[in-house]
């Protein structure tokens, strides 16, 4: 029972991270129909820039939480600029090109970013400082750390904030209009380029925070961390229904839970035939089954609410 509760907590934390990153994929897809494969790398750059800032501040004796906030104050704008810059340089010139062209460009950008980070910070796994208190909370025998609480809390907050932004602000209305039909939106006076830039910037800001939270949780950052995280988050977005904000959240949580419970119990249930190393197989099996019955994902009604 204690183990089950702990596995559910593990799954929710993992799922909240996937959801946070998945939002970045799904926002861009909703508006441009483009899969921004470089998003995982933006997440990684967010973690790395924050780490660099914190290292600079190490001697100042500021409280760790203040250092963390200063780090975020640098890395969030940096990632917003990076995200918007990627769009301007790599995607905008290809906006009317066949859909495969920007996809390949996205993969290219992702590789370029990884190796730029290698140039600056090297290939080593960087230990991440413990910026949040580490004493875990006890929940009926299961444990949850403050960093994990922060991940869940922040993800929920961001989700609510994004829904509000999309449904109750001028920018949100412009985003929905652009998603519906960019040409008509432009005729109605919407500055489509500005909307797209803002979408990339917001998604990248969320990515930066996700990168920092993940690194604090696992206490390590490295240049490849964005690749696998991005792949899983993208999977979560597809599972939930890509282009749908709520779908990213549901898909992320579901994928996290499947992975945690899968690696926890598949081995015991199959008598050791499939071990915990089959958790990704298990996760993708669920994805395939869901897509067979609901090809556009769990919450896949993209038309009304995509943004």
């Amino acid at each position: 029972m204690e183990t089950l509760l702990q596995q559910i907590i593990n799954g929710i934390v993992l799922g909240a991270v996937y959801a946070l990153v998945a939002l970045g994929y799904t926002m861009v897809y909703g508006i441009l129909g483009l899969i921004n494969f470089a998003h995982g790398e933006v997440v990684m750059v967010g973690a790395m820039v924050t780490l660099a800032v914190i290292k600079l501040l190490a001697g100042t004796g500021l409280p760790l939480v203040v250092q963390l906030l200063i780090g975020l104050a640098v890395s969030i704008p940096a990632c917003m600029a990076l995200g918007a810059g990627i769009e301007r340089v790599a995607y905008r010139p290809l906006r009317n090109a066949p859909r495969l062209a920007p996809l390949i460009t996205a993969i290219g950008v992702s590789i370029i970013l990884q190796y730029l980070v290698v140039l600056v910070w090297g290939r080593t796994y960087h230990p991440y400082p413990e910026l949040l208190p580490t004493t875990p909370f006890d929940l009926a025998g299961a444990r949850i750390s403050p960093a994990q609480v922060a991940i869940i809390f922040f993800s929920a907050l961001v989700m609510a904030g994004l829904l509000w932004l999309v449904h109750h602000t001028r920018l949100g209305r412009a985003m929905r209009a652009t998603a519906e039909n960019p040409v008509v939106a432009r005729l109605m006076g919407v500055n489509v380029n500005h909307v797209v830039t803002m979408t990339f910037a917001i998604g990248s800001a969320l990515g930066a925070v996700a990168g920092v939270l993940v690194s604090i949780n696992y206490s390590v950052a490295h240049y490849q961390m964005g690749f696998i995280l991005g792949l899983k988050a993208f999977t979560a977005a597809v599972l939930g229904g890509i282009g749908n904000l709520g779908g990213a959240m549901v898909g992320g949580l579901l994928l996290g839970l499947i992975e945690a419970l899968g690696s926890g119990y598949v081995g015991d249930l199959t008598g050791g035939l499939f071990g915990s190393n089959y958790r990704d197989v298990f996760a993708f099996l669920v994805l395939i089954v869901v897509l067979i019955f609901r090809p556009s994902g769990l919450l896949g009604e993209r038309v009304a609410e995509r943004a």
Partner: peptide
């Protein structure tokens, strides 16, 4: 228990929880 991870992973919460039990 004999659990498996990969040489790229950094999340071991699930298999460690299993081990803890």
């Amino acid at each position: 228990a004999h659990e498996h991870t990969t040489d790229k992973d950094t999340d071991f919460a699930a298999i460690l929880t299993n081990v803890k039990g």
